[in-house]
Amino acid sequence: MFLKLALQTLILTALCGAGGFLASLIHTPLPYMIGSLVASGLIGIFFSDRLPEGYRFPMKFRMIFMALIGVMIGSRVHADLIAEIPSLIASLTVLTGFVFAAHGVNYVIFRHLGGYDRPTAFYSGTPGGLMESLALGEEAGADIPILTMQQFMRIIAVISIVPLGLSLYYGAPVGSAGGQSMAAPDTSAAAIPLALAIGLAGLFIGTAIKLPAAQLTGPLLAAAIVTVTGLADLALPQWAINLSQVVIGTSLGMRFTGLRGRTMVVAAGLAVVSVTAMLGLGALCATALHSATGAPFDALLISFAPGGVTEMALIALSLHANPAIVTLHHVYRIILTVIEMSVIGRFRRAKQL
């Protein structure tokens, strides 16, 4: 059974990897993740009957590559970065207001434009905390299929729109689409075993102590400790980074398996409206912070973009923005969102009693 699932997953990943390669030929932003996501989504929507019965992309397989991405981000943490943390107070303060404002705007969009019931609109509109939104939404009586679709479409819309928007903003391809590499030069496959061992150790510890987004933050912190203390110089070859993007993109696209019809079209349209509103709000925050602090606008925008932590870190890496700072902002966003929706959700339920 395990070998059969492994073979099916390898074939699917290879097919979607071809989509990533084609995307790289036409210089799309973050090509290996977005290209594989599109290929996987098309397979899930139009060829779901060709997939093995009951097939689900194995999350443990995805976690291995997320751990590698976490190590890659953690290897960018140095002592001078730690010294910068006090300077982030302004952006974290603005991010606090962003979370409340974005959730409020999203609630209006899903409730009044989408016509969703109150619990579904409330938990569909959270700017983060995907798994927590699903768990609390189910408890509150939300429509779980719609809520799940809406939350995943938020992430997919962000990772599709942000790199493209920045390319249009600068008038030229940016990041990986502009030929930038996320890998350290002259890195061989011999570096992978150590990086993987540190990543898996961080994943185990991060999960045990219940870190937010533990599959990324655990390996990140483990790699940061190793790098800052000088125990090892961690690096990954470019092909390993590309493969990690393909696996992450393929697993995201598989969320669309079996989805068709008006419900999906409506959800996709609402996701675009919601994400556009949040990115517009994030752009205002980034512009204000850029004027006040001089921090790079693109790094600030990515820090406010409400996508998945791993995906936003990959975008930061492809743009040569500091992924550790971006990840710190997103972890804070997720923690704050979970606290905010838990408190407001409990208040709403108490009011209804």
Rank of each mutant, 00 (worst) to 15 (best):
V71G: 13
G70N: 03
S87G: 14
A79N: 14
M63I: 08
V38K: 01
M72P: 09
L5H: 07
A39G: 03
L10Y: 01
S48T: 09
A6H: 02
V77P: 08
L10A: 14
I43A: 01
L7F: 10
L88R: 12
G54Y: 10
L81N: 12
P31M: 03
G54R: 11
L95Y: 01
S75P: 05
L7M: 13
V77G: 07
L15T: 03
L12K: 05
L3A: 15
F57G: 07
R50F: 02
I43W: 00
D49V: 04
P86F: 07
L10T: 14
I69R: 05
G20F: 01
F21V: 13
M66I: 14
R62Q: 06
V71D: 13
I73V: 15
G70S: 06
I26L: 04
S75Y: 06
L3K: 10
G41N: 08
G54C: 13
E84W: 06
A79R: 15
D80F: 12
M59T: 13
M33Y: 02
A23R: 06
L42M: 10
H27V: 03
H78R: 15
S48P: 03
L92I: 13
I89T: 12
V77D: 05
G20L: 04
T13M: 08
L3F: 11
Q8T: 08
C16M: 03
L42F: 02
G35M: 04
G19V: 06
A83M: 05
T13H: 09
T13C: 12
A6C: 13
I82D: 07
T93N: 07
D80Q: 14
T9F: 00
L30S: 09
L68P: 08
S75A: 15
F47P: 02
A83T: 12
M72D: 08
L3V: 11
F21W: 14
T93Y: 02
S91T: 15
S24N: 09
P58Q: 06
C16L: 01
G44D: 05
L37S: 02
L42A: 08
I34C: 06
E53W: 10
T28R: 02
S40G: 10
V77Q: 08
F57L: 07
P52H: 10
R62K: 13
I69F: 14
I89W: 13
I73E: 02
M66K: 00
G44V: 07
V38W: 01
L5S: 14
L3D: 12
G20M: 07
V77W: 03
I43N: 00
S91P: 12
L22K: 01
G20N: 08
L5G: 00
F46A: 00
R56W: 05
L81K: 06
V94P: 04
P52V: 11
T93G: 15
S48H: 13
L10S: 08
V71I: 15
D80E: 15
R50V: 03
P58A: 06
L68Y: 12
H78P: 01
L25I: 11
V77C: 13
D80I: 11
L3R: 12
T9K: 05
F61R: 05
L12C: 04
F61C: 08
G74D: 02
G35W: 00
A90I: 09
Y32S: 03
L10F: 09
A39E: 00
P29I: 00
V71T: 15
G74H: 04
H27I: 04
T96I: 11
S24C: 05
G54M: 12
L22E: 01
R76Y: 05
L92S: 11
T93W: 07
I73K: 07
A90Q: 11
